[in-house]
Simulated assay, not measured.
Amino acid sequence: MRAVRLLAVGDIRAVEVDAPLPGPGEVLVRVLAAGICGTDRHLYKGEFPCAPPVTLSHEFAGVVIARGEGVSLAVGTRIACDPNIACGQCDQCLRGRVNLCARNIAIGIHRDGGFAECVTIPAHRAVETGGLHPHHAAFAEPLACTLHGVDLGQPIPGERVLVIGGGVIGLLAVQLARNAGAEVTLLTRHPAKRELALSLGAMQAVATEAEARDVLPNGADLVLECAGVADTVEMAPRLTRTGGRIVVLGVLPKGQKVQIEPFDLLFREIHLLHSFINPFTQSRATRMLSLKQIEVAPLISRVIPLAEAARAIAEPAAPGEVKVLVDPGLA
């Protein structure tokens, strides 16, 4: 079968591999849609730890076509993959902080993922999606990660929330904060993404820090940093009101540093938090997608075959592009 594998840092290609067989406790999934994530580009550049050679993609949906010993999940079940496999035994797992597991194994990072015709995953990482379109079900993982960040930020009705970054996480955050009853502003330099944010419920969309100051002269109660850029992380405290909160969801390259003034955070009692992956939020995300509480169809910029995935990961995202999906069924 065909799979898109990261063979080494800077070396990603579509290759022929043997089709996997499900072991005990596993299911074999025919992949119907897999999203290209910014983390995939970090992996390609060596900016995020992983274990090559490995088939990438931790955001995917498909259908169960075979099952291993001890699995009750029926063949034919539509699923979305919850990619993080916590050990359940380390100190963090025992505290309920499974996203901080010391021995976490991430599908598509440490073991083969969804940029392939088929993939095996532990059955307990398969979340049933019912009649949800697979192109939409592939958003379950990024929505689950965004849910965790918004949970940490705790927006309440009537608050002002500033989302920095108009990628998929930012545009999902806009909708989640809006659903919480907050007044939402998006900051992104891309005009098409500003228009998209307004159509998804943002009250305002601005291009610069100065424009954000104009519409939020006292700062935002909650800033959700979703761009993963040093400049925007440094900008976030300047756009947060006294007594406000910041949650950083964006992923910066490993080793990159930013400048923050601790005295400013202290004197204005700004809470600076970070959000990592999706602890116990994948099922919630899948239900929200099924109930159409979150719109994802407008976030799909294009759908490509497996043959084009390696190039799409290796090259920078096109201006205004939000989410590229890989459909292994396309020729």
Rank of each mutant, 00 (worst) to 15 (best):
Leu306Phe: 01
Glu26Ser: 14
Pro262Gly: 07
Lys45Asp: 06
Gly329Ala: 13
Glu69Gln: 11
Thr188Cys: 01
Gly113Ile: 00
Glu128Arg: 14
Val161Cys: 02
Met1Val: 13
Arg268Asn: 10
Leu7Ala: 10
Ile313Arg: 05
Asn84Val: 06
Thr242Ile: 10
Ile121Thr: 07
Glu159Val: 13
Val233Cys: 11
Glu141Val: 08
Leu21Phe: 15
Gln259Cys: 13
Asn104Ser: 11
Ala66Met: 06
Arg78Trp: 09
Glu261Thr: 15
Ala285Ser: 07
Pro191Arg: 00
Thr242Gln: 10
Ala212Asp: 03
Leu143His: 09
Pro262Thr: 08
Glu26Arg: 15
Glu308Lys: 15
Glu69Cys: 12
Gly167Thr: 12
Asn104Lys: 02
Glu59Cys: 08
Asn218Ile: 10
Arg78Ile: 00
Ala309Ile: 04
Ala227Met: 09
Leu299Thr: 04
Ser290Tyr: 02
Ala192Ile: 05
Ile313Ser: 04
Arg284Val: 10
Leu289Thr: 04
Ile169Arg: 09
Lys45Asn: 11
Pro262Ala: 10
Lys257Phe: 14
Ile36Met: 12
Val54Glu: 10
Gly23Ala: 10
Gln293His: 13
Glu183Cys: 00
Ile121Ala: 07
Val248Asn: 01
Arg2Ser: 12
Ser57His: 01
Asn179Ala: 15
Val150Tyr: 07
Val248Asp: 08
Thr120Cys: 15
Val324Lys: 03
Asn99His: 15
Phe263Trp: 04
Ile121Met: 11
